[in-house]
Amino acid sequence: MADREAFLARIRAAQPAPEALPEVPLFETPAGDLHARFVAALNLMGGREITVQHAGEVRAFIAERFGCEARIASATPEVEGTRTLDANTPPASLEDIDVGVVRARFGVAETGSLWFSESEYVVNSLGYLVQHLVVLLDPAQLVAGLQDAYRRDDFRAARYAVLVTGPSATADIEGVLIQGAQGVRSLTVVWLSAPLGVPVVSQRDTPVSTP
């Protein structure tokens, strides 16, 4: 056995027996309407929100705000893009995209955050290389706090998961806030009910054992 394999074998043999994780209680969250709390947190982090009645209005919003010639990559069939996006799309090819469109699985009222997995993004770089991100969110898909998000089955099962809170921002240089320095320059939440078939809120009620 090579030195590397022997070393790893000794580490595996020395692993302690798995134990059940302690059950973390759902701590009390602030009172108030989840939608209002989410919007307040989103605005605080530099995001914005609009409400539409149907998906066709999203393209009209994009044209009005970002121009009719904006290059659009859409990860949701609800909004047509100008660039085809599928699992075979090279991640780096999205570097010239003006607007990315994606539907969030759910939002977190506590922080104004949006949750995505590889299923929502289709190509994960959509959330980082595009100039502007437009996120569809069902008003019914809000959880109160991060503790609620961590208990969801889809959070646990995803191969890739990320909570996005507003546009990219930094204040490292002389304390001046700069948005878009390391990622998307703007993030707009579009309140739009999800079509049938989109997963609903699901929580994990029992602790999971460590591997």
Rank of each mutant, 00 (worst) to 15 (best):
M1S: 09
M1Y: 10
A2P: 15
A2F: 08
R4D: 06
E5Q: 05
L8A: 02
A9F: 03
A9L: 07
R10F: 02
R10L: 05
R10P: 02
I11H: 02
A14T: 13
E19H: 13
A20Q: 10
A20R: 05
P22N: 02
V24C: 08
P25H: 04
P25Q: 07
F27P: 03
T29H: 05
T29W: 05
A31F: 08
A31Q: 13
G32M: 04
G32Y: 10
D33N: 14
A36L: 13
F38S: 09
V39G: 01
A41Q: 14
L42M: 12
N43L: 15
R48C: 13
I50L: 11
Q53E: 15
E57S: 00
E57L: 04
R59E: 14
F61H: 14
F66C: 06
F66Y: 15
G67F: 06
C68V: 09
C68K: 09
C68G: 05
S74N: 12
T76R: 07
E78G: 13
V79D: 12
T82S: 15
D86E: 10
A87P: 08
A87M: 13
N88G: 15
A92T: 14
L94T: 13
L94K: 12
E95I: 13
D96E: 15
D98L: 08
D98F: 08
V102I: 11
V102C: 11
R103P: 08
G107T: 08
A109S: 13
T111R: 01
S113P: 04
W115E: 07
S119E: 15
S119R: 14
V122L: 07
V122T: 14
V123A: 04
S125W: 02
V130R: 04
H132F: 02
H132D: 11
L133T: 13
L133A: 01
V134A: 09
L136A: 01
P139E: 12
L142D: 01
V143I: 12
V143T: 04
L146R: 03
L146D: 05
L146N: 05
Q147E: 11
D148T: 00
D148I: 00
D148Q: 10
D148Y: 00
R151S: 12
R152N: 00
F155D: 00
F155P: 00
R156S: 03
A157P: 01
A157E: 13
R159E: 15
A161W: 02
A161N: 03
V162L: 07
T165K: 07
T165N: 05
A169C: 06
D172V: 02
D172Q: 03
I173L: 14
I173W: 03
I173V: 14
E174T: 04
E174L: 03
G175E: 14
I178R: 12
I178P: 00
Q179Y: 12
A181N: 03
A181R: 02
A181K: 07
Q182F: 08
R185L: 01
T188W: 03
T188R: 02
W191K: 02
W191F: 11
W191R: 04
A194S: 15
P195V: 01
P195G: 04
G197M: 06
P199N: 08
V201R: 09
Q203S: 12
R204M: 13
D205R: 05
T206Y: 09
V208W: 10
V208I: 14
P211W: 11
P211E: 13
